[in-house]
Amino acid sequence: MNQIVTIAKKEFKDAIRNKVFLTFLIFLLGLTAISIYVGSVNYQAKVSLFEKTYAQLIVNGQPSDTLVKPEFFPLQLLRATIEYLEIIGAILAISLGYLSIAKEKGNGTLPLIFTRPISRKKYYIGKMLGNIALIVSISVILFLFTFLLIRFVGGVNLNSLEITKILLTTGATILYLFIFFSLSALFTIIVKHPSNALIFSFVIWLFFVLIVPQIGDTMDTDNQVPGGFFNAIHVNKEQSNIILKDFSTYEKLRNGTEEISITKHYERLVFAFLGIKDMYNNKFLGFIFKDKLQDLDLIVIFLLVFGITPVYAFNRSKNLWQQNE
């Protein structure tokens, strides 16, 4: 156990001294800060407009009861943060997985390690734990940062349910990033030249993070018009479900395309937690978990497959160091 902790600590220390990693992290924090700041200012502008209009109506002696106060769902401010995490967070996790193995392979430090009394399995587990600690730190810093921005820039006090939802989003983000870390580590272990592993990882990233969700979104009937197609033609949710029954094959195909993307499952789950999809807004966790169980299940399946496979690959790989003269 001591050896695993030693490796994990060294891995953590090594990564936080890496300039590429720090640059990505600062970039991610910067984008998050901007998006939440813009969202908060936008909301405050709407409230200010409402208050001014309301005051004017009172002054003019006109009826003010038709004026609707803008609703504010503070967790919806995290939408952009989640979208950045889906894309940049995945790149960050891929970089961690790649660097964790490729640096050792490229530098030739592994012979120093494996002439010591430590098994390959323990060594990889130590590396994995060090990187999990790093991913946890990144996620906690990011969501703590968003919480503070909402509190102090947006001026909103979050209630305990909202804080719990942010914590669940943090947990889901850790799982999502870990899957990309493991995927990239796996490729780096099994291919002979680490640079090829980076190419493979980014092809996977491109396909599952950008292309597949985009196909799914483009095929979504409700996404054809800004604000929603059915909304635009004044068809409510129940009626739209009845209409969509006639297009069930098309919908199955669209949904099936999205199902293969881990990014889409992550997005569906955290958008539900954060109430970014209106139907989950202000809903209790029991309802959300029940409705999103399939996405959670698939995230766990991805997690198990990509979490365990690199351990065995590392244990058996003949590509970790040069094995002939």
Binding site: N2, Q3, T6, K10, D14, T109, L112, I113, P117, I118
Partner: peptide, 28 residues
Amino acid sequence: IGYLPENVKFYDNLTVYENLEYLAKLSG
């Protein structure tokens, strides 16, 4: 056993002490 490979490589991000501490701990 102890082993010095040809062209020994270390973790250049870490100091001499940190490298040796890491390897000493892995050696038990």
